[in-house]
Amino acid sequence: MSQHRHPGAPGSAGAVPALPDLPEATVARLPEYLRALHNLADTGHETVSSEGLATAAGVNSAKLRKDLSHLGSYGTRGVGYDVAVLIGQIESVLGLTQNRAVALVGVGNLGHALAGYDGFASRGFRIAALFDADPARVGEEINGLVVRHIDELPRVAAEESIAIGVIATPAAAAQQVADELVAVGVTSILNFAPCVLSVPEGVDVRKVDLAIELQILSFHEHRKASLTGLPATGGSALTALPGGLAATDSQEAIGT
Score class of each variant (00 low, 15 high):
76 T>Q: 14
79 V>M: 07
92 S>L: 03
116 G>A: 08
63 K>N: 08
56 A>Q: 07
99 N>Q: 15
100 R>V: 01
116 G>M: 02
137 R>E: 06
80 G>M: 06
85 V>Q: 15
69 S>K: 09
84 A>E: 13
143 N>H: 13
120 F>Y: 15
75 G>C: 10
54 A>E: 10
115 A>S: 09
116 G>L: 01
72 G>E: 04
143 N>M: 04
145 L>V: 04
73 S>I: 02
67 D>E: 08
142 I>L: 15
106 G>P: 06
101 A>D: 04
141 E>R: 09
73 S>T: 06
107 V>R: 12
146 V>S: 15
123 R>W: 04
142 I>Q: 02
150 I>G: 00
128 A>M: 02
64 L>G: 02
152 E>H: 14
112 H>V: 01
109 N>T: 03
63 K>D: 03
73 S>C: 10
111 G>E: 01
63 K>E: 07
107 V>K: 11
100 R>G: 08
130 L>N: 05
128 A>T: 06
104 L>S: 08
59 V>W: 02
100 R>L: 15
53 L>S: 11
132 D>K: 03
144 G>V: 01
88 G>P: 06
55 T>I: 11
107 V>Q: 13
127 I>R: 09
110 L>W: 01
82 D>Y: 05
59 V>L: 05
93 V>P: 00
109 N>G: 04
146 V>Y: 03
95 G>R: 09
82 D>P: 00
97 T>M: 00
98 Q>A: 15
116 G>P: 00
76 T>R: 08
57 A>T: 13
140 E>D: 12
120 F>A: 06
57 A>N: 04
73 S>P: 02
65 R>P: 03
101 A>Q: 14
62 A>H: 05
118 D>R: 08
53 L>M: 13
94 L>G: 10
81 Y>C: 08
122 S>Y: 01
61 S>H: 14
61 S>N: 11
72 G>V: 09
127 I>N: 07
133 A>F: 02
89 Q>K: 15
70 H>G: 08
151 D>E: 14
117 Y>L: 08
143 N>S: 15
109 N>K: 11
86 L>G: 10
77 R>A: 11
87 I>R: 12
90 I>P: 00
119 G>R: 13
63 K>Q: 14
137 R>D: 02
95 G>W: 06
142 I>A: 05
75 G>W: 02
85 V>K: 14
87 I>C: 08
92 S>N: 10
138 V>A: 08
123 R>Q: 13
63 K>M: 10
145 L>P: 03
109 N>S: 14
124 G>T: 01
54 A>C: 09
129 A>M: 04
150 I>N: 00
